[in-house]
Design a protein around this nucleic acid. Structure first.
Lengths: 216, 216, 216, 216
DNA sequence: AATGAATGAGAATTCATTCAT
DNA sequence: GATGAATGAATTCTCATTCAT
């Protein structure tokens, strides 16, 4: 019935009681992984929920036990992964003292995380942008967090006198993110040769670092 | 779904008898402009053909006199604009002798073209990616042309000894494109303040140029 | 997309421009008639929209050109018919001067209208009650109008001294309506023999009138 | 839909081993009571089995240990209650010698039983009609029993010379039932003020009795 | 007996596209 | 060429029911 079609909670999939930890905890993850793969191959809109279900080896309805809607699936995918990236990045940055190292760390991290996971790379650089609404409402905020982290690396380097001070940390952060995203996109859309991303990473880092260093 | 209805001929919109250029050329253009605006606001998939029709002030069926399908509309949009960008860029590059100038030209061109047309910027950086198949089949080739043009600017500069020779022109081209695309995306998704893009352009150019210059 | 699923207008089916008056005006009516028939046979919930469409000789989607939803179909059915009943009743009452005549008129009208249309009778006495929400939200108000009309007939008769004054006109109105509704229901659920309703009408009227007359 | 899943055996809820009557009889009753409440609030079709389960404090699957299907739940509800009404009525009628008293007894019984149980009233007057098939297949026969009992009261009164003989006992029975049902329906849909029903009962009885008495 | 996660058939609704006017 | 009413294929999501534990 039409009775009431909306609920406002931001999608808190009632994770069924984790008996042992095997079956159930797995299932959500299995669905996410299947979604990543299928979305990457066919695109978000061209993918049927039933295809994700089949790929995950569950019934169609099961998807809706863990995710509120097809949209929620994409959003969850993004949130799960970017949060992971953020956490990993923060940890790694903690161990790099100099601004140069920290910048290289950001670059290697973003490209490195995706190198092993072409599908994920494709979902993030391409699919996520497939729903304007999702993009604007959900992705944007999380995404801003990530950009802020990069901008802070730049700003710190500027304060330390390592990086030139005549450019905006935020613009530089977007430049760096965009550069890496562009590299990833062409890589994911093209051959995606092994090692391609890390080779590119080094060169991008070389150029950007050189461009950012303060000249006395 | 729509994807499957897509037929593979590269979209030959039977331009109705071009009498002078008045009546018909107008209508096609009007539809394209309307599509740009609506796609930008709601996203490609969330936009109904009937909405484009209403925005263009024509009947639903009329769209199909000028475009083969909804997909064709998006592809045509992209092709029309990137071709324009390419032509303009080529012309402009002809007048810039030094590698530095030429690189700045590329940067200013890409950001400049979009600065005045936020909707177009949004369509190109976001909407185009909404159909994976479109992206892979249609956009990729044209897009490669554009990247090649940039790569050539770099390669020429390397040959002239102006740019460092230890980086791949293609990787650099992707880096540059990605950087600009990222800037545009965050601009389009965010405030999109006037002048924001050109200010950013200068800084991006400064950094990238500095990073690319050959050190003796 | 989920974007926005509700619109608040109470279902104003954009009646397509009545060219001539043949095709289009017809279609809405044709669908209503088909719905009446199918709902009566199978019940509202057991009826698929596609079945109504087939019965009406239109495509599934066409239903939605004239009605907002399956629910709207049922509500429209009810509103159209009860409004007709009300109008007819008001007209008829205008010509009956005495309270007795007026009461008989009400009874004959309600049963008479339905006698020729068994399907409609079934929809009104049975199907309409199938959606609690519809019943409470839409039917109740219109229904109250009808009850008020009956109550007024009683009250007038009381004022004129014809009807006993020791009973509430509203309770009597409900009693009368219920009695007629019950008669109709058993008739519609059972044999529904021709003439059954009018024969019953006379007897019901006899009993109720006798029960209502003021005894000096 | 659900209708089609309906199997035709008349619902043989395997009452789990009735040890004394404690455990299990309880649970069945608890489920019925919960169903009554929820069906009344939301309607039969809009109610999910899981909602009934939650209201009854049992697991979804448990419902199916006591009832064959959702439909069976409604049918059982109806049968349980109408059987109760019939038994109570029969007993009460045994103690009333005169036709007038017997008729008043019928009226007070039907309204009285429901007065205390608004939910039940709603289920019987509204929800039961929600499944046409249920109505036609299951309710109709039991219902006929009830109508027959009323008709017999009338017929007896006619034989005794108390009631007018020029009306069909069956039509009168339907009239009486309908009148009471109509009263109940408007009461359940509306305010449902306490005492409303019994006050109405007296008036309805007054009118109907007066209308039915034989005039010498 | 009780549970509730999983199932998957089923249906309403949408919307790109067509075609009679 | 232009129109827009009509079409009907296609897809998300719901929910009664099952069954392994």
């Amino acid at each position: 019935m039409t009775e009431s079609r909306f609920s406002t909670e931001p999608a808190r999939p009632r994770a069924p009681r984790a008996r042992g930890k095997s079956r159930d905890g797995d299932k959500r993850e299995r669905i996410l992984r299947a979604a990543t793969k299928v979305f990457a191959r066919k695109g978000f809109y061209a993918t049927k929920v039933s295809e994700v279900a089949k790929a995950a080896g569950v019934a169609d309805g099961t998807i809706y036990l863990y995710f509120k809607s097809k949209d929620d699936l994409l959003v969850s995918l993004f949130e799960d992964r970017i949060m992971l990236l953020l956490a990993t990045l923060d940890r790694a940055l903690g161990e790099r003292p100099t601004p140069e190292e920290r910048l290289r760390c950001v670059i290697e991290m973003q490209l490195g995380l995706l190198e092993g996971e072409r599908d994920l790379a494709e979902v993030i650089t391409i699919n996520l942008r497939q729903s304007t609404r999702l993009m604007k409402q959900y992705a944007a905020p999380k995404f801003a967090l990530y950009l802020d982290t990069i901008a802070r690396v730049i700003a710190d380097g500027q304060k330390a006198g390592t990086f030139r001070a005549d450019v905006s940390p935020h613009i530089v952060a977007r430049t760096i993110f965009g550069a890496l995203d562009g590299i990833t996109m062409t890589w994911a859309l093209g051959k995606a040769e092994a090692g391609g991303l890390s080779r590119a990473a080094t060169q991008v880092a070389d150029v950007l670092l050189e461009g950012l260093l303060a000249r006395r």
